[in-house]
Protein backbone atom coordinates (compact mmCIF):
# COMPACT_ATOMS: atom_id res chain seq x y z
CA UNK A 1 0.00 0.00 0.00
CA UNK A 2 1.13 3.51 -0.74
CA UNK A 3 1.52 6.11 1.95
CA UNK A 4 1.66 8.88 -0.64
CA UNK A 5 0.49 8.89 -4.25
CA UNK A 6 0.95 12.10 -6.16
CA UNK A 7 0.03 12.34 -9.81
CA UNK A 8 0.73 15.25 -12.14
CA UNK A 9 0.59 17.73 -9.31
CA UNK A 10 0.86 21.40 -10.25
CA UNK A 11 0.90 24.27 -7.82
CA UNK A 12 1.26 27.98 -8.46
CA UNK A 13 1.95 30.41 -5.61
CA UNK A 14 -0.02 33.69 -5.54
CA UNK A 15 -2.16 32.60 -8.45
CA UNK A 16 -3.69 35.51 -10.33
CA UNK A 17 -1.30 38.12 -8.92
CA UNK A 18 1.81 39.72 -10.47
CA UNK A 19 3.90 37.50 -8.18
CA UNK A 20 2.53 34.29 -9.65
CA UNK A 21 5.16 31.57 -9.57
CA UNK A 22 4.90 27.95 -10.59
CA UNK A 23 6.23 25.97 -7.64
CA UNK A 24 5.37 22.45 -8.82
CA UNK A 25 4.97 21.33 -12.38
CA UNK A 26 3.54 17.91 -13.14
CA UNK A 27 5.15 16.16 -10.23
CA UNK A 28 4.32 12.47 -9.85
CA UNK A 29 5.68 10.44 -6.98
CA UNK A 30 4.76 7.37 -4.97
CA UNK A 31 6.08 6.58 -1.53
CA UNK A 32 5.41 3.14 -0.12
CA UNK A 33 4.26 2.59 3.45
CA UNK A 34 7.09 1.95 5.86
CA UNK A 35 9.65 3.52 3.58
CA UNK A 36 12.05 6.32 4.42
CA UNK A 37 12.20 8.76 1.58
CA UNK A 38 14.39 11.81 1.16
CA UNK A 39 13.30 14.74 -0.96
CA UNK A 40 16.25 16.82 -2.04
CA UNK A 41 16.62 19.86 -4.25
CA UNK A 42 18.06 23.37 -4.29
CA UNK A 43 16.29 26.13 -2.35
CA UNK A 44 13.20 27.22 -4.22
CA UNK A 45 12.82 23.90 -6.03
CA UNK A 46 9.38 23.20 -4.55
CA UNK A 47 10.27 20.72 -1.80
CA UNK A 48 8.38 22.47 0.99
CA UNK A 49 5.40 23.14 -1.30
CA UNK A 50 5.24 19.45 -2.16
CA UNK A 51 5.28 18.20 1.43
CA UNK A 52 2.69 20.76 2.52
CA UNK A 53 0.27 18.81 0.32
CA UNK A 54 0.87 15.73 2.45
CA UNK A 55 -0.97 16.92 5.55
CA UNK A 56 -3.61 19.09 4.03
CA UNK A 57 -2.01 22.52 4.45
CA UNK A 58 -2.16 22.99 0.71
CA UNK A 59 -4.95 21.71 -1.50
CA UNK A 60 -3.91 20.40 -4.91
CA UNK A 61 -4.67 22.93 -7.66
CA UNK A 62 -4.20 20.42 -10.46
CA UNK A 63 -3.44 16.72 -10.36
CA UNK A 64 -4.21 14.29 -7.56
CA UNK A 65 -2.79 13.69 -4.12
CA UNK A 66 -3.75 10.57 -2.21
CA UNK A 67 -2.63 10.10 1.38
CA UNK A 68 -2.99 6.61 2.82
CA UNK A 69 -5.36 5.89 -0.03
CA UNK A 70 -7.64 8.86 0.53
CA UNK A 71 -8.02 11.69 -1.95
CA UNK A 72 -6.84 15.04 -0.57
CA UNK A 73 -9.04 16.92 -3.02
CA UNK A 74 -11.81 16.27 -0.48
CA UNK A 75 -11.77 18.97 2.17
CA UNK A 76 -13.04 16.61 4.86
CA UNK A 77 -10.07 14.32 4.17
CA UNK A 78 -7.61 17.23 4.26
CA UNK A 79 -8.81 18.63 7.56
CA UNK A 80 -8.49 15.22 9.21
CA UNK A 81 -4.99 14.53 7.93
CA UNK A 82 -3.23 16.08 10.93
CA UNK A 83 -4.05 12.94 12.92
CA UNK A 84 -2.10 10.67 10.59
CA UNK A 85 0.53 12.97 9.16
CA UNK A 86 2.86 14.87 11.46
CA UNK A 87 4.72 17.72 9.82
CA UNK A 88 7.73 19.41 11.31
CA UNK A 89 8.21 22.73 9.60
CA UNK A 90 11.38 24.20 8.21
CA UNK A 91 11.48 26.67 11.11
CA UNK A 92 9.96 24.52 13.86
CA UNK A 93 10.45 27.30 16.40
CA UNK A 94 7.50 28.92 14.68
CA UNK A 95 5.31 26.07 15.80
CA UNK A 96 6.10 26.54 19.49
CA UNK A 97 3.61 28.61 21.42
CA UNK A 98 2.80 27.15 24.84
CA UNK A 99 4.10 28.48 28.14
CA UNK A 100 6.13 25.43 29.02
CA UNK A 101 7.89 22.77 27.03
CA UNK A 102 5.62 20.14 28.62
CA UNK A 103 2.44 21.85 27.43
CA UNK A 104 3.90 22.36 24.01
CA UNK A 105 4.72 18.70 23.51
CA UNK A 106 1.37 17.69 25.08
CA UNK A 107 -0.66 19.91 22.76
CA UNK A 108 -1.34 17.40 19.97
CA UNK A 109 -2.04 14.40 22.25
CA UNK A 110 -4.48 16.61 24.19
CA UNK A 111 -6.28 17.39 20.96
CA UNK A 112 -6.52 13.70 20.24
CA UNK A 113 -8.54 13.48 23.43
CA UNK A 114 -6.17 11.07 25.18
CA UNK A 115 -6.16 10.43 28.91
CA UNK A 116 -3.85 12.46 31.16
CA UNK A 117 -1.77 9.38 31.84
CA UNK A 118 -1.34 8.57 28.15
CA UNK A 119 -0.48 12.19 27.37
CA UNK A 120 2.22 12.10 30.04
CA UNK A 121 3.62 8.84 28.65
CA UNK A 122 3.78 10.28 25.19
CA UNK A 123 5.48 13.48 26.35
CA UNK A 124 8.19 11.53 28.15
CA UNK A 125 8.67 9.16 25.27
CA UNK A 126 9.01 12.03 22.80
CA UNK A 127 11.45 13.74 25.14
CA UNK A 128 13.53 10.62 25.28
CA UNK A 129 13.36 10.11 21.50
CA UNK A 130 14.71 13.59 20.85
CA UNK A 131 17.37 13.34 23.54
CA UNK A 132 16.04 16.25 25.58
CA UNK A 133 16.70 16.42 29.33
CA UNK A 134 13.70 16.22 31.70
CA UNK A 135 14.52 19.49 33.42
CA UNK A 136 13.62 21.30 30.25
CA UNK A 137 9.90 20.50 30.69
CA UNK A 138 9.17 23.44 32.97
CA UNK A 139 11.01 26.00 30.87
CA UNK A 140 9.43 28.30 28.36
CA UNK A 141 10.11 27.03 24.84
CA UNK A 142 10.85 30.60 23.83
CA UNK A 143 13.81 30.80 26.21
CA UNK A 144 15.63 27.90 24.55
CA UNK A 145 18.45 28.04 22.03
CA UNK A 146 17.67 27.57 18.35
CA UNK A 147 18.77 23.93 18.26
CA UNK A 148 16.83 23.02 21.41
CA UNK A 149 13.66 24.70 20.11
CA UNK A 150 13.91 22.56 17.01
CA UNK A 151 14.10 19.42 19.09
CA UNK A 152 11.11 20.46 21.21
CA UNK A 153 9.08 21.08 18.05
CA UNK A 154 10.00 17.65 16.74
CA UNK A 155 9.10 16.09 20.09
CA UNK A 156 5.68 17.76 19.80
CA UNK A 157 5.06 16.06 16.49
CA UNK A 158 6.41 12.68 17.63
CA UNK A 159 3.96 12.81 20.56
CA UNK A 160 1.19 12.64 17.98
CA UNK A 161 2.57 9.21 16.97
CA UNK A 162 1.71 9.83 13.33
CA UNK A 163 1.60 7.16 10.61
CA UNK A 164 3.50 9.45 8.29
CA UNK A 165 6.18 11.71 9.67
CA UNK A 166 7.23 14.55 7.40
CA UNK A 167 10.30 16.52 8.41
CA UNK A 168 11.29 19.65 6.54
CA UNK A 169 15.04 20.10 7.05
CA UNK A 170 15.01 18.33 10.41
CA UNK A 171 18.71 18.53 11.26
CA UNK A 172 19.39 22.08 10.15
CA UNK A 173 20.66 23.93 13.19
CA UNK A 174 21.33 20.80 15.25
CA UNK A 175 24.81 20.27 16.60
CA UNK A 176 26.57 17.07 15.53
CA UNK A 177 25.80 15.15 18.70
CA UNK A 178 22.09 16.04 18.70
CA UNK A 179 22.03 15.30 15.00
CA UNK A 180 23.50 11.86 15.51
CA UNK A 181 21.08 11.19 18.36
CA UNK A 182 18.17 12.36 16.27
CA UNK A 183 19.17 10.27 13.25
CA UNK A 184 19.41 7.27 15.55
CA UNK A 185 15.89 8.05 16.77
CA UNK A 186 14.67 8.07 13.20
CA UNK A 187 16.45 4.77 12.61
CA UNK A 188 14.66 3.29 15.59
CA UNK A 189 11.35 4.60 14.29
CA UNK A 190 12.13 3.09 10.90
CA UNK A 191 12.39 -0.33 12.46
CA UNK A 192 8.78 -0.07 13.46
CA UNK A 193 7.51 -0.90 10.01
CA UNK A 194 4.29 1.00 10.37
CA UNK A 195 5.76 4.48 10.06
CA UNK A 196 6.61 6.22 6.83
CA UNK A 197 9.26 8.90 7.14
CA UNK A 198 9.66 11.61 4.57
CA UNK A 199 12.42 14.12 5.00
CA UNK A 200 13.21 17.18 3.04
CA UNK A 201 16.90 17.79 3.34
CA UNK A 202 19.96 19.58 2.03
CA UNK A 203 22.20 17.22 3.87
CA UNK A 204 23.27 14.58 1.38
CA UNK A 205 24.98 12.73 4.23
CA UNK A 206 21.64 12.42 6.05
CA UNK A 207 19.92 11.23 2.87
CA UNK A 208 22.68 8.72 2.15
CA UNK A 209 22.64 7.35 5.67
CA UNK A 210 18.94 7.12 6.27
CA UNK A 211 16.81 7.03 3.16
CA UNK A 212 15.88 3.94 1.11
CA UNK A 213 14.63 6.07 -1.65
CA UNK A 214 15.40 9.57 -2.97
CA UNK A 215 13.46 12.09 -5.05
CA UNK A 216 15.34 15.03 -6.55
CA UNK A 217 13.39 18.18 -7.39
CA UNK A 218 14.68 21.05 -9.48
CA UNK A 219 12.66 24.10 -10.40
CA UNK A 220 9.37 22.43 -9.50
CA UNK A 221 10.01 19.26 -11.49
CA UNK A 222 11.01 15.76 -10.43
CA UNK A 223 14.36 15.23 -12.17
CA UNK A 224 15.67 12.04 -10.57
CA UNK A 225 14.22 9.32 -8.41
CA UNK A 226 15.22 5.89 -7.28
CA UNK A 227 17.03 4.02 -4.57
CA UNK A 228 19.58 6.08 -2.71
CA UNK A 229 22.50 4.33 -4.38
CA UNK A 230 21.04 4.71 -7.88
CA UNK A 231 20.46 8.42 -7.33
CA UNK A 232 23.87 9.25 -5.91
CA UNK A 233 25.44 7.33 -8.78
CA UNK A 234 24.28 10.20 -10.96
CA UNK A 235 26.63 12.54 -9.13
CA UNK A 236 27.21 14.86 -12.06
CA UNK A 237 23.55 15.49 -12.56
CA UNK A 238 23.10 16.21 -8.86
CA UNK A 239 26.04 18.61 -8.78
CA UNK A 240 24.86 20.35 -11.95
CA UNK A 241 21.64 21.48 -10.25
CA UNK A 242 23.51 23.01 -7.32
CA UNK A 243 23.37 20.12 -4.89
CA UNK A 244 26.15 18.08 -3.42
CA UNK A 245 26.85 14.41 -3.12
CA UNK A 246 27.96 12.81 0.17
CA UNK A 247 31.59 13.42 1.11
CA UNK A 248 32.57 9.79 0.40
CA UNK A 249 31.17 9.98 -3.15
CA UNK A 250 32.93 13.30 -3.76
CA UNK A 251 36.23 11.87 -2.54
CA UNK A 252 35.90 8.89 -4.87
CA UNK A 253 35.07 11.11 -7.84
CA UNK A 254 38.14 13.24 -7.19
CA UNK A 255 40.32 10.14 -6.90
CA UNK A 256 38.96 8.95 -10.24
CA UNK A 257 39.83 12.31 -11.79
CA UNK A 258 43.39 11.70 -10.66
CA UNK A 259 43.42 8.34 -12.43
CA UNK A 260 42.75 6.06 -9.48
CA UNK A 261 40.19 3.42 -10.50
CA UNK A 262 37.92 3.44 -7.44
CA UNK A 263 34.18 2.83 -7.65
CA UNK A 264 32.15 5.94 -6.95
CA UNK A 265 28.86 4.34 -5.92
CA UNK A 266 29.73 4.05 -2.26
CA UNK A 267 27.44 4.99 0.59
CA UNK A 268 28.93 5.73 3.99
CA UNK A 269 32.53 6.33 5.05
CA UNK A 270 33.16 2.66 5.79
CA UNK A 271 32.28 1.55 2.26
CA UNK A 272 34.66 4.19 0.92
CA UNK A 273 37.50 2.98 3.16
CA UNK A 274 36.93 -0.62 2.03
CA UNK A 275 36.99 0.38 -1.62
CA UNK A 276 40.19 2.44 -1.27
CA UNK A 277 41.93 -0.42 0.53
CA UNK A 278 40.81 -2.86 -2.18
CA UNK A 279 42.11 -0.65 -4.99
CA UNK A 280 45.38 -0.08 -3.15
CA UNK A 281 45.95 -3.84 -3.00
CA UNK A 282 45.07 -4.31 -6.67
CA UNK A 283 47.48 -1.56 -7.68
CA UNK A 284 50.26 -3.14 -5.61
CA UNK A 285 50.01 -6.48 -7.44
CA UNK A 286 52.53 -6.80 -10.27
CA UNK A 287 50.82 -5.98 -13.53
CA UNK A 288 47.79 -4.69 -11.59
Amino acid sequence: MWAIEVENLCYTHSRGTPFEKAALQNVSVKIARGQTAAIIGPTGSGKSTLVQHFNGILAPQKGTVKILGRNAADKAVRTGLWRQVGLVFQYPEQQLFEETVYDDIAFAPKNLGLSKEEIKNRVYRALNDTGLPENILTRSPLSLSGGLKRRVAIAGVLALQPEILVLDEPTAGMDPVSKKQFLNTLKKLQQRNDITIIMVTHSMEDAARLADWVLVLDDGRAVLEGTTREVFKQAHKIISIGLDVPVEVKTMLKLRQRGIPVRSDVLGLDEAVKEIVKVKEQLKKPGG
Binding site: P42, T43, Q90, E169, A172, G173, H202, G242, D244
Partner: peptide, 12 residues
Amino acid sequence: DEPTAMLDPAGR
Protein backbone atom coordinates in the same frame (compact mmCIF):
# COMPACT_ATOMS: atom_id res chain seq x y z
CA ASP B 1 24.72 33.31 13.58
CA GLU B 2 24.39 29.93 11.84
CA PRO B 3 23.61 31.66 8.58
CA THR B 4 23.63 28.59 6.38
CA ALA B 5 21.27 26.32 8.28
CA MET B 6 18.60 26.77 5.63
CA LEU B 7 20.76 26.99 2.54
CA ASP B 8 21.36 24.30 -0.04
CA PRO B 9 24.95 23.24 -0.70
CA ALA B 10 25.41 25.67 -3.58
CA GLY B 11 23.83 28.51 -1.59
CA ARG B 12 26.03 27.65 1.36
